[in-house]
């Protein structure tokens, strides 16, 4: 991958992980439940499309320290605001996924200059009792993996240990993975609906929506619900053969949508 690099920045009492790659106009990638699990195909696809991708990890997710002091969604949004400033990505176009897309929308609602145009992949935040969001935590790790991507091998960088990894690093990799899952749970447990529909009218950014047709966590019907609620939707794409993390299942397709939407 062209110039793939990791960085650690001091953030509050801990640290913030940041990965970047590619050359060209800058775009932010705000990860979802899989965090930033090293070099993966979506970052590569964005880089190949001519972007300089900057991907900070939210507190507790891969590469960032545990989210102490974060009691509620307000704390998370304030942390995200501070985090994008620290990462130097404020005002850039953003591709945000899953829990990251939920945070991006919350931040965009109260800080319009936080992002430019937005590509949002299966955001959490809405709840339809007739078609509820599935519980990704009341399941085994194996099943959770199946829920996150249509093709379980697409999330290998998160779930699988590298064969050559020393034993002590394997343990820490397991702990990191556990903490990333914990951070997701902290954000969206037990029901990922915190009143965002009352704030969406404040999001003026041009938004392109992406949703995996085989998303086993957030039903595909939510694509239409977001499109109805957001005031400035410029595109909505249902991706065949893609699960919750469509950017992991179909990296080139989602990168192409991002290129079209953000260029």
């Amino acid at each position: 991958m062209s110039g793939y690099a990791t960085e650690t920045l001091a953030f509050r009492e801990g640290h913030l992980g940041l990965v970047s790659c590619g050359e060209g106009a800058r775009v932010t990638y705000l990860h979802g439940m899989l965090g930033n699990p090293g070099e993966h195909a979506f970052l590569k696809a964005l880089a190949n499309d001519g972007w300089r991708v900057v991907a900070p990890s939210l507190p507790g997710f891969t590469g960032s320290s545990e989210p102490s002091g974060l009691r509620n969604l307000h704390d998370w949004v304030v942390a995200a605001s501070e985090l994008i400033d620290l990462a130097g990505v404020t005002g850039l176009p953003v591709v945000a996924s899953s829990v990251g897309a939920m945070i991006a929308l919350e931040l965009a609602a109260i800080r319009p200059e936080a992002f430019g145009a937005m590509v949002l992949i299966a955001p959490f935040g809405l709840w339809d009792p007739e078609d509820p969001v599935a519980d990704p935590f009341a399941t085994t790790l194996t099943n959770q993996r199946r829920m996150l991507t249509a093709d379980p091998t697409a999330s290998a960088s998160f779930f699988d240990d590298a064969e050559e990894m020393p034993a002590d690093l394997l343990v820490e990799h397991g702990v990191d993975r556990y903490l990333t899952r914990t951070a997701s749970a902290q954000l969206i447990w037990p029901i990922p609906e915190f009143g965002i529909s009352d704030r969406l009218h404040l999001v003026k950014n041009p938004v392109t929506l992406v949703h995996g047709a085989k998303d086993e966590i957030i039903p595909a019907s939510y694509l239409g619900k977001w499109a109805q609620l957001l005031p400035n939707v410029i595109g909505a794409h249902l991706i065949e053969e893609a699960g919750h993390h469509a950017e992991f299942d179909r990296p080139e397709d989602v990168a192409a949508i991002a290129k079209s939407a953000l260029s």
């Binding site: 545990e66 935590f137 009341a138 399941t139 085994t140 099943n143 343990v171 820490e172 397991g174 702990v175 556990y178 903490l179 899952r181 914990t182 997701s184 749970a185 902290q186 447990w189």
Partner: peptide
């Protein structure tokens, strides 16, 4: 059901480790 027994965050990092 095993899916109810180990939600992420229930264990401390030290216990996981």
């Amino acid at each position: 059901y095993a899916g109810f027994a180990d939600p992420p965050g229930y264990k401390t990092p030290n216990t996981v480790r």
